[in-house]
């Protein structure tokens, strides 16, 4: 009985993890071919390990592909009211991941952690040099999986 419960809990946690780390039709672990099918017809730029996809549900998505699978992704979208949107997203992500362990309201950065994975949230500062985002829309805030505070 214990073994069955253990197996069920493992399956359940894996299922939860997959659901947590997704954005619409893009999720961690999906095959590259499935990703390209998901974004069929949208503009994208590709290197050997990263793909930037434009206009995906009015967002741009930076995907890292490792071993032919999605291992990391960042989503950036336009926002009319970035401050309120940031607060809304903090609440939304807190419900999923608990209280952020890093929150810098002045710089508009927050970092959440769960099960060894990280989700960062950021509104770009005006000083970051954003003047145009050709083909991919102007970006103001970002979700990120694992390690995105650096850009």
């Amino acid at each position: 009985m214990k073994k069955i419960l253990f197996a069920v809990s493992i399956v359940f946690s894996v299922f939860l993890s997959a659901d947590d780390f997704s954005y619409r039709g893009i999720f961690l672990g999906m095959n590259k071919s499935d990703l390209l099918r998901e974004v069929d017809g949208l503009p994208y730029i590709e290197t050997s390990d990263k793909i930037v996809i434009g206009n995906y549900h009015d967002s741009s998505v930076l995907v890292t592909v490792t071993g032919n699978k999605v291992s990391d992704f960042t989503v950036k979208t336009d926002s009319e009211d970035d401050k309120n949107e940031f607060i809304r997203l903090i609440a939304e992500l807190s419900a999923k991941f608990g209280k952020p362990f890093y929150l810098d309201s002045k710089k508009f950065k927050a970092l959440f952690a769960k099960d060894g994975k990280f989700v960062s949230l950021r509104i770009n500062k005006k000083s970051s040099g954003f003047t145009r985002f050709i083909g991919f829309g102007y970006s103001k805030e970002c979700y990120s999986i694992k390690s995105v505070l650096e850009d």
């Binding site: 730029i45 990263k50 970051s128 040099g129 985002f133 050709i134 991919f136 970006s139 850009d151």
Partner: peptide
């Protein structure tokens, strides 16, 4: 090539191609 949003939007999108 840096594909972070700042570098990317300021020219690396074209530079990659």
């Amino acid at each position: 090539v840096c594909m972070g949003s700042s570098c990317f939007s300021r020219g690396n999108n074209e530079s990659i191609e």
